[in-house]
Design a protein around this nucleic acid. Sequence first.
DNA 1: GGCGACAATACTGCATACCATATGGGTATC
DNA 2: GATACCCATATGGTATGCAGTATTGTCGCC
Lengths: 266, 266
Amino acid sequence: MREPKNKTEPATSAPASPEPDGKAGSRAALVYRALRRAIIEQALMPGSKLPEDAIGERLGVSRTLVREALARLATEGLVELRHNRGATVAYPSLEEARDVFAVRRAMERLVVEELCGRLTRAQAQTLEAHVAAEDRAQGRNGPESIRLAGEFHLLLAAMTGNALLERYVNEVASRCSLILAIYGRPHSSECAVNEHRELIAALASGDAARATHLMDHHLEAVMGRALIKARAEPDIRDVLAAYAETEGLEPGPARTPPKARSRART
Amino acid sequence: MREPKNKTEPATSAPASPEPDGKAGSRAALVYRALRRAIIEQALMPGSKLPEDAIGERLGVSRTLVREALARLATEGLVELRHNRGATVAYPSLEEARDVFAVRRAMERLVVEELCGRLTRAQAQTLEAHVAAEDRAQGRNGPESIRLAGEFHLLLAAMTGNALLERYVNEVASRCSLILAIYGRPHSSECAVNEHRELIAALASGDAARATHLMDHHLEAVMGRALIKARAEPDIRDVLAAYAETEGLEPGPARTPPKARSRART
DNA sequence: GGCGACAATACTGCATACCATATGGGTATC
DNA sequence: GATACCCATATGGTATGCAGTATTGTCGCC
C-alpha cells in the first residue's frame, strides 16, 4: 500500500468539475454522505475498520477529507474514533441504545407537538407517498426498508421547520438504524408501516393526545422489537471468556471494569 | 502575515509534552474548547471573523487543527462556515433562537424525568455547591455568570448518565448562551439562581410534576428575558436599507427573499 | 464625478509529506 | 518450551505547500 501516486495526476476519479451532483457543497460532505449511507445500509457492518488511506483511495480523495468526514460521523456516534488506533463503524452497547431511544422519544414527541393540527394537505400527501414507498420495500429489501423507515421520521421533523430539531432527529434516527442493524431481527419493520399511517391520520386530524400516544407506542414497539433479542458480541473478550471456562482455561481478571458506566454519577 | 515559520522549531507554544492539562485528549479538542469558551464568554462577539491562520498562530497549532475545531463548532451552531469565505462566530436569528429553545425545553424535560426522585444526596450537594458559585458570580461577572448558568443544566444532564442527552444539552445550552449574548440584557440572570434552587429541591423530593413545571417555567423565563428585547442587527443590508430610505437613497431590490424560511415546508 | 472593470491580496480548500505511536512477529533468554 | 523484549511495519496525527476563489483597492472610461 501507500504507493506514491503519480504527482501529475491529482488522483481524482471525479474530475475538477464544479460538483456534478446537485446539492453537494464540498467534497468532504460528499465523503461524509457516502460513508454515512454505507453504514446505515449496512454495507459497512458495525465494528468494521475504516482506514483513512483505503477510503480515500477508493473515493478518490485525500486522507484529509476522509478524516474530516470520519470526525463528523464520530460526533454523531456512527463511528468510533480510538486514539491512534483508527476509526471503526460504531458498535453501540445496549446501554447506549437505550440512551438513544430515550432521547429520540423526547425529540419525536416534540415533533408531534409542533406538527399536530398544522399539517397541510400537501404535507399529508407527501407522507402518504413515502409510506407507500415503505410498503413497496417491505421485507423484500432489508437495508432499504430500514432506511425508509428512518426517513419517514426525518420527513416529519423537516416539516416542523425547526432546523435544529431536524438535525437531531436525523442523528438519533441514524443511530437507531445502526442499533437495529446490530440487535434487530432481519425483517423487523412488519407493522411499522401501519403505525406510520395511523400517525399521519392523527396528525392531520389534530388529535394531539392520540398522535403523541401513537408516536410513543411506535417507538416503544421499535425498541422492543430490537432490544428483546439482545444477541450480540460487543467485546471479543466477553465472548471468549465463556469459551475459556468450558475448555478449562483461566479467563483472566474479568477484563477492566466494564467502562464504569453506572447511572447517576458525578 | 504568513511567515514561513522556522521549520526546526515546531512552533508550539505548548511543548511536545504529553498534554499538560488534565483531560485533553487531542490538541484539536484543546483548540475546540478554547474557541468555544471564548465564544460563550463573549470574548469573541457574534459575527466576528475567525481566520484559521490567525487562530492557529495565536494558539500555537497549525491550520489543520483549527479547521477541525471550527468544523465541529459549526455543526454545533456556534460558528458559521460560509464556503470559501471563512468562519465567523454565529449570529443566530430570532427564528433560530426560538427553535433552539423549543428543542432545549424538550431535552430538559427529559432530564428532569430521568432524574426526578433518583437524585442522590451527593449529587444534590454538588448542585447546591454549583448554585452557590452562581450566586457569587451574580451580576458582578456577566460572562461567567452566563457560563455558570449554562453549566448548571449541563451538570444535571450529566447526572442522568445518558451520554447522548448530555451532549445535546451541552449543545443547546451553548447556543442559548450565544443567544443571550446577542439578545439578552446585560445582567439577566437575576432570578435564575433561585429557580435553580427550587428545581433541585423538587428533584430531590421526587415531585416530578413540580420539577417539570419548574424547569419549563425556568426556561420560559430565560427565553422571555432574552427575546422580549430583540435588539439586534442580524444583517448589514437590513440595517442599512432603513438608513438608505431616510437619506433618500434607493435601497435596492430588498435583497434575496429572506432565506425563504417559513414554518411547515416541504 | 460616478460607475464598471481589473489587479492585487488574503483566505480557504485540498493534497502531500513527515513524525509519533500502536501493533505484530521474531528472537534471545530464562 | 514459554516468556519477555525488541524491532519492523503499518496507521494515524500534524504541519506545510499549492491552487482556487472571493474581496478589496485602484485605475480607466463613460
